[in-house]
Simulated assay, not measured.
Amino acid sequence: MNIWVIAGLLILIVLLLTKGIPLKFSRVLGQGVVKVTIGVLFLFFFNLFGASLGLHIPINIFTAVVAGLLGVPGIASLTAIHIFILP
């Protein structure tokens, strides 16, 4: 099983070295990484200031994507879920 994973990765590396990475794919991937990073920062500052009110939203990939894609309304929706749905 491990040999197939290594072989697949080597084939992928060789293909990327010969064909190159498509520009649109790398642009979309880069924008996604930036948005998720901004989401993590939003959640960090929310947890920092929300601690005095007893609010805490865990930082994981789902919450980071929601906060990164939706921004402040995403933080508000995660807070509402935390307050009203999760005990």
Rank of each mutant, 00 (worst) to 15 (best):
N2W: 09
P58W: 12
V66T: 05
K24T: 00
T79Q: 11
S77N: 03
G54S: 10
V34S: 02
I3W: 15
L55H: 03
L10H: 13
K19H: 10
G74F: 02
I81M: 14
F62C: 06
L10E: 02
L12W: 13
L70M: 09
W4M: 14
V33K: 09
N2P: 06
L69S: 10
A7W: 05
G54R: 09
L53N: 15
T63F: 03
K24E: 09
I75S: 00
Q31H: 13
A7V: 10
K19E: 13
P73I: 01
L12N: 14
H82E: 11
G39P: 01
T79M: 04
A64Y: 01
V65M: 05
F62P: 11
L48K: 07
L69I: 12
V34R: 06
S52P: 03
L43E: 13
I61R: 05
P58Y: 06
G71I: 00
M1G: 15
G8I: 11
F62H: 00
H82N: 04
K35G: 10
L53I: 15
A76G: 03
W4T: 14
L29E: 07
L15R: 10
Q31T: 15
F46T: 03
A64S: 01
G39T: 04
T79W: 09
V5T: 13
L48M: 11
S26G: 01
N2S: 12
K19G: 05
V14K: 12
I81P: 00
I38Y: 07
P73D: 03
A64N: 01
I21L: 10
F25G: 09
K24C: 03
F25I: 02
M1P: 08
S77R: 06
K24F: 02
L29H: 01
A51R: 08
S52C: 09
V33T: 10
T63C: 00
V34T: 12
I57P: 04
L41I: 11
L15H: 11
I6P: 06
V5L: 13
I81D: 03
L86H: 07
